[in-house]
């Protein structure tokens, strides 16, 4: 590190050791990288890195184990919440989380997430919603906006034939077994800092055996939205947050006030 000559300087932004020191495969401007870093920070701050088991899903985030240096098991597409149930029931002392995209969690895995949530499994679910199936090239997803063009809704999602996007945070918040359910975004620094706090709560709940915590991240997917990273980032702040409002929708600590 170059030594500043006149005045002493201090590094103010540190990456936790659990975050691998490597470039990622994500597309330019993909928000997965930001969510990965927040996750690494939270596990580091809570001091639980060595107790954590990651349950990876199938999607752009399938390589999470290359970036978060944690014990990890890969689950079949849509089944992370069930695999995590098995892991948590087998090893209740470990901190267990799933990291899933909107196709994995809200389409094929909807049954698994609803039941893990309603059983009140003491786990944390990190749900990254970018309104498309990213890895497979940008198809219609459960959270695709009405009118949004995708490779399988080329005239734009039609409400009549494809229904409207699922608001997972509110749905999960409505289940009696759930302890905490919130939606955040990482499209600007204010939201990133807030997201970090809420994600930390989602894991602290688990460490304190309070039950099922669900955190939805609104995320940009420039490549499959056919936008520049900056435009995609703006879309999150505009159209998406309008439809998917940020906030804590359930918090049994103070019942979501």
């Amino acid at each position: 590190m170059t030594q500043a000559i006149q005045t002493e300087e201090k590094q103010v932004f540190r990456l936790p050791d659990v975050l691998a020191d490597t470039a990622t495969h994500f597309c330019p401007g993909c928000h997965h990288g930001i969510v990965h870093r927040l996750l690494a920070d939270v596990l580091d701050q809570l001091g639980v890195v060595q107790d954590t088991i990651c349950v990876a899903s199938v999607g752009c985030s399938v390589f999470i184990y290359n970036y978060l240096l944690l014990d990890t098991v890969e689950s079949p597409h849509g089944r992370a919440a069930a695999v995590a149930t098995g892991v948590k029931r087998a090893n209740p002392e470990n901190v267990v989380f799933t990291y899933q995209g909107d196709g994995d969690l809200a389409a094929i895995g909807l049954s698994e997430i609803m039941y893990a949530a309603n059983r009140g499994e003491n786990m944390t679910v990190v749900f990254v919603n970018n309104t498309v199936y990213g890895m497979t090239g940008g198809q219609l997803a459960p959270t695709t906006m009405v009118g949004q063009k995708t490779t399988t809704s080329q005239q734009g999602r039609s409400f009549e034939t494809d229904g409207a996007p699922l608001k997972m945070t509110e749905i999960i918040a409505g289940l009696p077994g759930v302890y905490f359910s919130a939606r955040v975004a990482v499209n600007n620094v204010k939201n990133i800092k807030k997201a970090g706090k809420i994600l930390k709560k989602g894991f602290a709940n688990q460490v304190q055996h309070k039950g099922f915590s669900f955190v939805e991240f609104l995320a940009a997917c420039p490549t499959n939205w056919r936008m520049t990273p900056v435009e995609a980032n703006e879309r999150v702040g505009g159209e998406m947050i309008d439809y998917f409002p940020l906030g804590i929708f359930k918090d049994n600590d103070n019942d979501g006030l």
């Binding site: 201090k10 590094q11 103010v12 990622t24 994500f26 993909c30 997965h32 990482v186």
Partner: peptide
């Protein structure tokens, strides 16, 4: 550095 998705930025603040 907060928003960098690729963890490419290291920031130093002078005293």
């Amino acid at each position: 550095a907060e928003i960098c998705p690729d963890w490419a930025l290291t920031v130093f603040r002078d005293k």
